[in-house]
Design a protein around this nucleic acid. Structure first.
Lengths: 196, 196, 196, 196
DNA sequence: CCCTAAACGAGACGGTACGTCCGGTCTTAAT
DNA sequence: ATTAAGACCGGACGTACCGTCTCGTTTAGGG
């Protein structure tokens, strides 16, 4: 009884496909990148892509997830304001510049029509929200956050601005914005205290 | 020198095209609506679409802009909290349910690849931000907002949450969220005072 | 009861259309000339063409008929051989060179799909056959032709070679061919005598 | 280095395309048969036609060449008159009736605008001329033809009549014509003798 | 001198076909 | 069994024309 026969998955092909997808995004030559082009670029048969990924969105999602793996360690300076400032600056630097920005935009577009991409994007962003939530709760544990503060909403506000600028206004995601946003978040988290 | 010669644009055709585009979005039959299908659905030659719109995104954008024309009048209850609550509830009700939600999602996707759609979406959202900004500044004039509060960022936070849920998490945009968001915004606007 | 009211046909437009059709053929830029292009070239509304001609083939036919009006006078040297030689040389010179050659080819093509063009071509060629037939019968009256000679077939043979070269082999229609053909025709007309 | 990879050409698809082309010609439903219709009729993707043929004319040409492959064996009765009579009768019977007549007319029209069709038609007719030339030279070897007779021209005369009737006058290509033409050709070939 | 009528240039309309590109499936020979 | 190659059917793309249908303008008698 064989446990597995036949040729094994070719890791080089996998790499070539993901790299080709990102390369095409970077070059941003044409409005959209096709499976056809990815295969040609990667020097790979089209079927090899279909064998391992259910859709183009899934390829992009894997490419993105891979690049994002090196998640920045959460800063821990002791104050919410500083932690948030550092976290947002680091996030914006990665996500606000090419190639990541283009990748995310393409993935967002793809997610609107491809459920696989939607699921991948949701999973990815859920991890990010979790991370930010952790940062906020650490501050709450230190007593920097009012009891009534709605941390879940705050997380969505912060990432909301990021995606809003990425996909709609295309305004810069720079350090200045990170600082303003950190300030606003701190005001919101703390401010309810005086309102309470 | 003649000012205009030849047959005039057929308003019925224009209507049929925009309506067909929205109808297709509503039915959401296929992941993407093609110009071909819009033309067939509208009982119109394909060229008639190409004659008046530069791209599919431009058709969707015009369809959306038209539906959005009936902008809700800004509430004016005298308090920021209540104004915001009403405004967000009204906005979420329109935008968070079909057909508007699907239209916006499709337009967002299209805007990532089609500059015409991108421009149309940016113009549309700029108008919305302006409106919300007006609401906030009225409150500021009443002294409800701390001097240091960053209203521009606040506007982006609120709409950011809306689009984030629409396009990424697909969580409901309900009255509960509107209220929480209004609360958070008030806290942020007022809260800086204690931080100041 | 009025006999005719309203503006009269514009002769300049007619001329411009026929000239544009021939010009386009000459330039032979693209595989085929469209009504659209003729109209643009002629600086004329498309409807003006449709008003006066039933099809593109009819325009070409009229253009050709007009050019062919200046029919060469039948030579009359006293011998069949010489008459035929001169007639074929003159015909080949006109028809074997541009623009006439292209016009005839285009008309032939059009006649295969457009009944109007077919009728016009048949009428035109019938006139030509008549002419050649006259030449042959003059020789017969002089006793140069055997009684059994089939003049109708001979006419078709001569014009058959012309069109065969024009449309299929595209070999030159030069003086040499005219002379060989004249010789062959004389042999055929006279030759039956010995066979009789 | 591989000699050939990938799926092989589907012979059934090739057959279906050629058959559909001929079928459409037969039915002669529309003045012109489009690639679109051939593909639909054949149950084949449009690209499959473009992959293997450079133009519509090339498809028609291949369809015709295939039908013509079963070339009638040259008759060999011992006399030019009889050989020619039989050859022309057989040729006219094939070519003068549908579907062949329509096919040839369509191909002739196509050849006036499509170089591929022109080349195919020239190649096809060259073969036919060769055949007829052989028949004539066999008679010459038997001494039935005058030394000065211009066999090349005679071949063009005979096929010229065929195409002239096919494409211009559309008169019948019947046995009677074959016989008259054979008689005329014999007169021409032999007649030069008395003229010499 | 207007009135009616037709022809004019322009150009929008619903369509058909073009030739290209891509999607997702399949077949082939090689590994 | 997987791979690169590549043919297959299907179908959308954006363009070119088709023949028809308005438009407003121009030109010509007839009243």
């Amino acid at each position: 009884m064989r446990s597995h026969t036949g040729r094994r998955r070719n890791e080089q092909a996998r790499r070539a496909i993901l790299d080709a997808a990102v390369d095409l995004l970077l070059r941003a030559e044409l409005p959209d990148i096709s499976i056809e082009r990815i295969a040609t670029e990667a020097g790979v048969g089209r079927q090899t892509i279909y064998r391992w990924w259910p859709s183009k969105g899934a390829v992009l999602a894997e490419a993105m997830a891979e690049r994002a793996e090196a998640a920045a360690p959460l800063p821990d300076t002791g104050t919410l304001a500083e932690d948030l400032r550092l976290f947002l600056r680091a996030t914006f630097r990665t996500v606000g510049t090419e190639p990541a920005a283009g990748l995310l935009r393409a993935l967002l577009a793809e997610a609107q029509r491809d459920p696989h991409a939607a699921a991948a994007l949701e999973a990815f962003t859920a991890g990010r929200r979790e991370q930010l939530r952790t940062l906020l709760e650490r501050a709450a544990a230190r007593g920097e956050v009012a009891a009534e503060a709605d941390l879940a909403v705050l997380v969505e506000q912060l990432y909301g601005v990021l995606w809003y600028r990425l996909s709609i206004t295309r305004e810069a995601l720079d350090d200045g914005l990170a600082d303003r946003l950190a300030g606003a978040a701190v005001a919101q988290a703390a401010g309810s205290r005086s309102a309470g």
